[in-house]
Design a protein around this nucleic acid. Structure first.
Lengths: 193, 193
DNA sequence: GCAAACGTAGCACAGTCGTGCTAACGTCAC
DNA sequence: GTGACGTTAGCACGACTGTGCTACGTTTGC
């Protein structure tokens, strides 16, 4: 066998190279060659991990979702319902640069989804996951008596989900809005008492 | 002089051709040649109206914003404050196919803005315009006594703006959500009484 | 009729793209 | 050592890109 290479680690490094290009120059600048250069790889090596561009783009989006999902999962053990709900929702909003990159990549690749069916699937799955997160947060809060017991969970989820996505959009656009975004979310959750 | 051509009308026709391509195949498929074909023009003619690709993309985004702004302006005369606020906000949400295209184009070109400074400017202006719309709606409602007089307008605007953008995102993704989106907005505005 | 002006058509160039393909390299099992 | 094979390197092709540029038609004012 040849020199032992950690494929998964390399794939992630390549995925992050895609992110950086998307962030810095837009999706239009993503090509196998520019990504290879960004990851300090030769075209041949890159294509060993990702034979086609479609596979590369899909993985870059998947990676962003996985990272976010992993962060959300890390708060599963938090006891206090209020803190748990807040922490989970904060993880899908671009409150630091890491999350900001994920958000931009998600949006940029979503815009390309008409051309790449897999991207549309992934974007849909992410949408559903975030909606699920909102529903779960509201359920937890209701069971803990922290929001009105007669709250229509379905409708409240629709609103919370839209608010989270909208606030995320604004925090992505302007990092200075981060504190205002957190406050707006807190106010909304409080208003459901 | 040669045959008389309505330039503005032609530019708009070309802009709409860009929209259709963005919608159908993503921004990545937008090139001077594909746009010319979509607008049933020859490359040379297209380039008479838009010499460079940057100019073309910027105009396509501008056109979407202008159309939306024009629709919003059409409700300026509505007397009933509640109806006027609702109508204005509805115009920036993709509640029909026309508005849906505008929204997709806006998002797709926003994703390209790292590469094209002008697109970032336009996206920023649109963002501010929608925020202004939200603030105005809330002001009108407050002056009419339809929302709490002690409402913190700044904060309420942040929340309303995020909600509108988030709901817009969801209506764009899935047109079946349109009614739920309208209802969620109504519920939110009602909750400010 | 003539010339000027405007619009259309399209060639040409240098560059980049995705991808098929082959050749060399490095490391392990035996 | 020797063979096997995962990995790296990179050439080559046809297609497509944005843009500079020229030539041609067509219509108008005189």
């Amino acid at each position: 066998m040849p020199r032992t290479i950690d494929h998964e680690e390399r794939r992630q490094r390549i995925g992050e190279a895609v992110w950086r290009i998307v962030l810095r120059e837009g999706v239009g600048a993503v090509s196998l060659r520019t990504v290879a250069a960004e990851a300090e790889l030769v075209l041949g090596s890159l294509r060993h991990s990702f034979p086609t561009k479609d596979a590369l783009l899909a993985f870059a989006m998947e990676l962003a979702h996985e990272r976010a999902a992993a962060r959300v999962g890390r708060h599963a053990g938090v006891r206090d319902p209020w803190r748990r709900a807040r922490a989970a929702l904060h993880e899908v909003m671009p409150l630091d640069d890491e999350r900001r990159v994920e958000m931009r990549v998600h949006l940029a690749l979503m815009a390309e989804s008409p051309a790449h069916e897999r991207l549309a699937e992934l974007a849909g799955a992410a949408h559903d996951a975030i909606r699920g997160l909102c529903l779960e947060a509201l359920t937890v809060l209701r069971d803990a008596g922290l929001v009105r017991a007669d709250l229509d969970l379905r409708r409240a989820t629709t609103t919370l989900h839209a608010l989270v996505d909208g606030l995320a959009l604004h925090a992505m656009r302007d990092p200075r809005q981060r504190r205002a975004v957190v406050r707006a979310l807190d106010e909304h959750l409080s208003s459901l008492r």
